[in-house]
Design a protein around this nucleic acid. Structure first.
Length: 446
RNA sequence: CGGGCUAUAGCGCAGCUUGGUAGCGCGUUCGUCUGGGGGACGAAAGGUCGUAGGUUCAAAUCCUGCUAGCCCGACCA
């Protein structure tokens, strides 16, 4: 993409309404524009990031055996009356009426809908397990939306649901999602830590929140350093192997990790030696829980088991705050100059900066780099504006492009361009083609 | 939902106390000089002062209602 042809309304000064860094940077980088309280338009740059996040979630969900569907945003009140939540949900649910005066609602979540779908489509235990998910906009009429996309009223969420014949099956499904979440966040360059969540009225230990560690996080977290250092890395996962999944989940849940909600200082101190105690802040980006037959019973989602008895489906639900992640990643990764995108979600992977627009050689070298990088499959932004160098650096750093190829007459005289890393600030002079090859190696592009 | 605050040009703000021609910085447009980390000079465009009403010869300014947005707290992917 040539910057002169792109739509990138960046702003120099910080809008006054934005209090936290991700919100400020998203506005300044021209990623979003507020439509009303807690409701945002996603401008090209923001939309690109959102799509990349979404794509990673899609890939990891499907790798783990979950199947994509798409349920509507507008739902009928009927199902919610059956589950009893139409009254329970309260004013956070946006209620509307259609022209026939029927009660409708803008879905805050989809348990009822998916359970209805499962009930209609699953006839026997032989159809199980079933894991379905979608990525769809939700609306929760928050009393006080704030922090930009981190707590909007309208937000994009991946919500998945599992259906099994018994608790053992449900645990396997739960573990699939647990491991899938570890992979998903790791791929996005995030350090996400699963923490035991408040299980509420259902009880049990099958509920975890995934928090990414960021100084500006909304909740205090307490964890064992061993856990903070754990990574999945390249390990092969056999999603059908319940024992392997259980082993990984055990590995991640045996160390202490809790948010301020469930934190118990005495247990923390007893279980974790002093030098391993980490107190930090985190942002919740995922939440998984097992809820048994909470919805299948009232919605009559029954299925025949091997003995021919009709039993309620065993379910769990698994959420990832997709739009929130866009903000959360920035909270976890930025500096004074702007955003520092992890490569996997960067709106552009590499920027070509022409230091002297209009200089014949510089223009030609940039065009060549731009063409070649694009041909190699890179998402590249070419800053071809007739601006001074400083302005280009400021813009490219603000929008967080991981790699810069800096092209100017001086370097070209020696046959080199400069390759600079946004994250580390490291710079290196290379022949243009070597720079391309270096990037191709790094990104695994042939 | 309790408490606090704001609304004037795309963004950040001043003007309001004491009513009288709507201003500044950034950004934008044009020109010239420039050109390796938000450059300089010159010129220009851009505002029903959130909205409805009231007081007044006269309202951005005073009064009343309404609306929208923000912050702290309680609640949440």
């Amino acid at each position: 993409m040539r910057l002169t042809r792109y739509f990138l309304p960046i702003i120099k000064e910080t809008p006054s309404e934005a209090q936290i860094v991700s919100h400020r940077l998203m506005l300044r980088a021209g990623m979003i524009r507020q439509a009303s309280a807690g409701i945002y338009s996603w401008l090209p740059l923001g939309y690109k990031v959102l799509r990349k996040i979404e794509e990673i979630v899609h890939q990891e969900q499907q790798a783990a055996g979950s199947i994509p569907v798409l349920m509507p945003t507008i739902q009928s009140a009927d199902l919610w009356r059956q589950s009893g939540r139409y009254d329970d949900y309260g004013p956070e649910m946006l209620r509307i009426k259609d022209r026939h005066d029927r009660d409708m609602l803008y879905g805050p979540t989809n348990e009822e809908q998916i359970t209805e779908i499962a009930a209609a489509g699953i006839r026997s235990y032989r159809d199980l397990p079933a894991l379905l998910y979608h990525i769809q906009w939700k609306f929760r009429d928050e009393v006080r939306p704030r922090f930009g996309v981190m707590r909007g009223r309208e937000f994009l969420m991946k919500d998945g649901y599992s259906f099994d014949i018994d608790k053992e099956g449900a645990r396997h499904s739960y573990n699939r999602m647990f491991v899938s979440y570890l992979r998903t966040f790791e791929r996005m360059g995030l350090k996400a830590v699963p923490m035991k969540a408040d299980s509420g009225p259902i009880g049990g230990d099958m509920t975890h929140e995934f928090l990414i560690l960021a100084e500006t996080g909304e909740s205090a977290v307490f964890l064992d350093r061993d856990l903070a250092d754990l990574t999945l890395g390249d390990r092969e996962i056999d999603w059908e192997d319940a024992a392997q999944l259980e082993g990984i989940v055990d590995q991640w849940t045996s160390s202490y990790a809790r948010t301020d909600e469930t934190h118990d200082a005495a247990v923390f101190e007893a279980q974790v030696s002093e030098e391993r105690r980490v107190t930090a802040r985190g942002i919740e980006v995922g939440h998984i829980f097992y809820f048994g037959s909470k919805y299948s019973e009232p919605l009559n989602a029954m299925v025949a088991n091997a003995e021919g008895e009709r039993v309620p489906l065993e379910s769990g639900s698994y959420g990832i705050g997709v739009s929130r992640l866009a903000g959360a990643i920035i909270e976890a990764s930025h500096d004074d100059n702007g955003i520092i995108w992890p490569e996997a979600v960067a709106p552009f992977e590499v920027a070509v900066i022409n230091l002297k627009q209009g200089d014949e050689e510089a223009d030609a070298a940039c065009e060549d780099l731009y063409t070649k990088l694009t041909a190699r499959g890179f998402d590249v932004i070419y800053d071809d504006r007739n601006e001074r160098a400083g302005s280009k650096f400021a813009t490219i750093d603000l929008i967080g492009v991981p790699w810069k190829l800096i092209v100017g007459p001086r370097g070209l005289k020696n046959g080199v361009v400069e390759m600079a890393c946004r994250k580390t600030g490291e710079k290196q002079e290379l022949a243009p083609d070597d720079a391309i090859n270096r990037l191709a190696d790094r990104f695994g592009r042939t």
